[in-house]
């Protein structure tokens, strides 16, 4: 028997990519309104990945990241992360609240980050729920700043019961100019939304969108 997650058909991956684009498009608009700047969204990337590759994908298991995590329940269930690296998080706090961060984040800047994460992941999920006509109720999001491996693996435990792979649904948004030039040469602030539906939810999404017949699984 094949692994449902690992062997997902290319067609279905494309459908997930489209869903992710819709979610991140709405989130980009929300961020743009908050910042009063242009925010670009990249076309989403969707791929089955072994757990270790997921942490490599975000710069390695020990890479310091800022992450808002929430779980959604309802017709479909799963986990969601909004991730920015430390420098980008500092720059967001500066732009939104005028707080200059030196070293650790203060209480105020943490609540700014928490709020940004709440608004953006909320608008992403609302767009998804509207598009699929499925109920997705987010739990209260939680903020943590720590090693990528430690944070992401928490969101993989549910999937871990069924597979050693997760479908990484990654949407990237990038705020205009003003930020620093990052290590990877990109300019500006980049945020990632990782959507990690529970394995049982994929079938429901495809059914809701009328695409469950395709792909031969």
């Amino acid at each position: 028997m094949g692994d449902l997650i690992k062997d997902m058909a290319a067609f279905h991956l494309d459908v997930l990519k489209e869903i992710s684009n819709i979610g991140s498009g709405h989130a980009a608009t929300a961020l743009s309104q908050m910042l009063g700047k242009r925010v670009d969204m990249q076309v989403s990337r969707v791929m089955p990945m072994p757990f270790d590759e997921i942490t490599e994908y975000v710069g390695g298991a020990e890479n310091l990241i800022t992450s808002v995590f929430l779980r959604f329940e309802g017709d479909i269930t799963g986990n969601m992360f909004f991730i920015v690296d430390k420098e980008d998080a500092e720059s967001l706090v500066q732009d939104l609240a005028g707080i200059q961060v030196e070293g650790d984040f203060c209480e105020m800047s943490l609540s700014v980050l928490q709020e940004v994460g709440n608004i953006l992941s909320g608008s992403y999920l609302t767009a998804l729920a509207d598009f699929t006509a499925m109920e997705m109720k987010p739990t209260v999001p939680s903020l943590a700043i720590d090693m990528a491996g430690a944070l992401l693996s928490y969101g993989l435990t549910e999937i871990g019961k069924s597979s050693d792979y997760a479908i990484m649904i990654d949407a990237e948004i990038q705020a205009e100019g003003m930020g620093h030039v990052r290590k990877d040469g990109k300019k500006g602030k980049t945020g990632h939304f990782f959507l990690l539906p529970d394995p049982e939810s994929f079938e429901k999404v495809f059914l809701a969108l009328g695409v469950h017949q395709y792909g031969g699984h």
């Binding site: 942490t55 298991a61 020990e62 720590d146 491996g149 693996s153 928490y154």
Partner: peptide
């Protein structure tokens, strides 16, 4: 598993 002189490591334990 590992034997001397090698070391053995794992990165980024959270709830694991």
């Amino acid at each position: 598993v590992a034997a001397y002189p090698d070391t053995i490591t794992t990165l980024g334990l959270g709830s694991c």
